[in-house]
Design a protein around this nucleic acid. Structure first.
Lengths: 151, 151
DNA sequence: ATGAGTGCAAAGGCTTTGCATTAGG
DNA sequence: CCTAATGCAAAGCCTTTGCACTCAT
């Protein structure tokens, strides 16, 4: 998998640029996130990375986030989720289940992104805030919770 | 203030429909949220509603949320914020400060809302999720934190 | 009088931190 | 060697819950 090698190389570079080492634990975390396909909870991270201590997972995910490799996703419940940074996976948005909290990725039409960028510019101009990113979530019910409702 | 009277009447109706009473504490909470103009933290709620117990504030905000009077806003930090439900204040989106967490309201052009609704429909059709709402946040730095950075 | 609402204190759950040990450069 | 990283346990912080008391109907 050349793509995965590239990912690790990029992660390594970013951590070094941040004065950090790309250790086995950190590499394992990146693998977990690259494999999962959607933002994952700490519980899921620990299940996928056997032998990794809870505190190391939190600390390393924070280090990876500081280095711009990982993004911490906060939705509506009290459990954070983690995914690879957008510039590694491509810009996307989220479908969030308001029942169980699970998050899926969705792509958004270029035209809509363009409209949002315009909004960001005009809002920044009107408010004296600076605007860096945006976040568009669709909130609803995932297939699993939908079938649970019906039964 | 006729508008505020309407607000309290609506809140009262919704609580009763939910089998709940519109008590003095709950009325005070609605007043705090109506006055603040942007989503507020629990700390701010307690400061504004003198004599209100922490547990009562949490419990009553939960009751008000269940009744559809209040909306709990989760952004990027670990402190929830509360605002009046959108159908009481009008649909809007948020400007979130990634430094201090403060949240401001912004209105979004009708055309953009329309595009987002289309996205919601197509995403629902493509994924077998059901989609109820959306949430668009602009993430950046508020004026206060911007001046703190410069100094 | 009867159940909802309230306040205090204690407990919960996710996350962070202190500290001794281990490993990488 | 020397600093960073790790793992365990303890602490923190926001939030929820248990329980006795008060208030409204």
């Amino acid at each position: 998998m050349a793509a995965v090698d590239d990912l690790h190389r990029t992660a390594d570079e970013r951590l070094r640029a941040d004065g950090q080492r790309y250790t086995a634990n950190r590499r394992a975390l990146v693998d977990v996130l690259a494999t999962s396909g959607c933002p994952v909870t700490m519980t899921e991270v620990l299940a996928a990375a056997e032998g990794l201590a809870l505190s190391s997972a939190y600390r390393n995910l924070a280090v990876l986030e500081d280095a711009g490799v990982v993004h911490r996703v906060v939705t509506t419940d009290d459990t954070a989720r983690y995914e690879l940074a957008e510039d590694l996976t491509g810009h996307h948005h989220h479908l969030v289940c308001t029942t169980c909290g699970v998050v899926a990725d969705i792509d958004v039409p270029e035209a809509l992104e363009h409209h949002i960028d315009e909004l960001a510019r005009s809002a920044a101009a009107a408010t004296s805030w600076s605007v860096d990113h945006h976040r568009l979530d669709l909130l609803g019910t995932c297939p699993t919770c939908r079938s649970a409702q019906r039964s």
